[in-house]
Amino acid sequence: MIEFIEGPLWYLALATFLVGVAWRLIVLVAMKRPSDLSQARSASGGLGGALKALIQHSVPHGGNLGRTLYHFVTGYMFHVGLLVLVLFAAPHVEFIQERLIGSDLGWPKLPRWAFIVAAEAAFAGLILLYVHRLTDPVKKQLTDIDDHLGVWLTFIAMLTGCLALQEAHDGLRATHMLSVEALMIYFPFSRLMHAFTFVLARAKTGATYGRRGFAP
């Protein structure tokens, strides 16, 4: 079973993730979209607007920040914490070097204290976001099954990752891999795709309104 999880299933999950994400993005980009025949206020407005929107919507701006500040803090705690864990947790670095790159490229590994800080930030961020989703009247109206599945699959992957940190038991490591594989297979067909589609959405709005003179 462990061999299957760490072998064929891993490659199936990886292929599903990579091909699925690429396919989703290609389909989105290839779908017809209306051309804009209006005369732009400035020739570079579209490109400038797209770039501005890509950057500006990463931070709170424009006022009415009550809800935004909560999401900004908890969202960055979760996303940055998770990204740091995925890319720099010592077992992940070894895994990346052995299974994905095939050589030691000197990828830096997180010291234990940094792993704990990143993990705490990621867990706290995710839990705070989810509690808000369950209790806030606005979010409750918007939430669907995809939102719950995305959170729980991510949470389980993070939790099993912590349990497997010491690599004391092959079963724990396999459990973590299995949960990550489930997340990777689910990812391209879910709202988790926002990790990529945010670029398309921000750029489209920024370009449209940048032509007009103000990218919101």
Binding site: R24, L28, V29, A30, M31, K32, R33, P34, N64, L65, G66, R67, T68, H71, R133, D136, P137, V138, K139, K140, Q141, L142, T143, D144, D147, R191, M193, H194, T197, F198, L200, A201, K204
Partner: peptide
């Protein structure tokens, strides 16, 4: 079209938009 599909795929149901909407702010109706 692709532009609308990208928007629909990108929405993470965070609800931050509520605070910017005058109808929500005036009524506090989710």
């Amino acid at each position: 079209g692709g532009h609308i599909a990208a928007y629909l795929d990108a929405c993470v149901h965070c609800g931050q938009c509520a605070q910017a909407c005058h109808f929500h702010e005036a009524t506090q109706d989710p």
